[in-house]
Simulated scan of single mutants.
Amino acid sequence: MLERMKIEKEEGRGRDDVMSGERSGNRTRQHHHHNTTVDPKEPSTTTTTTTKQGIEHDAMRSRIMKLNEKLKTLNSYSSILNILNLMSLTWHLVYLAQRIHLTC
């Protein structure tokens, strides 16, 4: 989670941007293609720069998606362990209550 937040901070965007990007699909890629209009008089460096930015953005996005998947997995493990802990503490409470009842 901290690594994902660090990447988002470096990129200059927050959690809302990443989540809306996941929901909207290819909206950001469509935006990049909209900016790639080529003027026949100028060299094609703008297209190359935009393509590089798009590739970097896609790489960063895939890295964030991998981190999201890892975070989901860890959250699942944590939930399972919390449930097991709750069950064991409940059992222990019942055990202690029976011992107190037998003693009195």
Rank of each mutant, 00 (worst) to 15 (best):
R27G: 05
N26M: 00
G25H: 01
V94Y: 09
V94R: 15
R4Y: 04
T48H: 03
E10M: 08
Y77H: 13
T50R: 13
S79W: 11
T37R: 10
N75T: 13
T90K: 05
A97W: 13
T50V: 14
H33W: 07
S20N: 13
R13F: 07
L102Q: 12
C104W: 04
V18D: 02
L84R: 07
R13Y: 10
K52Y: 11
H92D: 02
N26E: 00
D58A: 01
S78N: 01
T90A: 03
L67D: 02
S78W: 09
T48V: 03
I7T: 04
T90F: 10
I55N: 15
M1W: 00
M19V: 10
L67P: 05
T47A: 07
L96G: 04
R29I: 09
S88R: 12
E10D: 05
T90G: 12
S44V: 11
E3K: 12
T51R: 13
S78P: 07
D17S: 00
V94I: 12
E3D: 08
M1Y: 04
H32V: 10
S24T: 08
R29K: 14
I55V: 10
T45C: 05
H57C: 00
T90S: 14
E3N: 06
S88P: 08
D17N: 15
E69P: 02
T47Y: 13
K66Q: 06
H92S: 08
H31I: 14
H33P: 07
Y77V: 13
S76Q: 15
K6P: 00
L96A: 04
M5S: 07
C104E: 15
T46G: 06
D17Q: 10
L2D: 01
T73I: 15
T36L: 14
H34M: 10
L74I: 08
E3Q: 14
K72V: 06
E69G: 03
I80S: 11
T47N: 05
S88F: 11
P43K: 10
H34N: 11
N68A: 00
T50H: 03
L84E: 02
H34K: 12
K66F: 10
D17C: 02
S88I: 01
T73P: 00
Q30P: 07
E69T: 04
N85R: 02
E10W: 12
T49V: 15
T37A: 11
I80L: 14
C104I: 15
R99L: 00
G54A: 13
E10T: 02
I83C: 03
S79H: 11
T73G: 07
S24V: 14
T36F: 14
L86I: 11
K6S: 01
K52G: 06
R15M: 04
N82S: 15
E42A: 03
L71Y: 08
S79F: 04
Q53Y: 06
I64Q: 08
S79Q: 14
V18A: 05
T36P: 12
T103N: 09
D16A: 06
T48P: 07
K9Y: 10
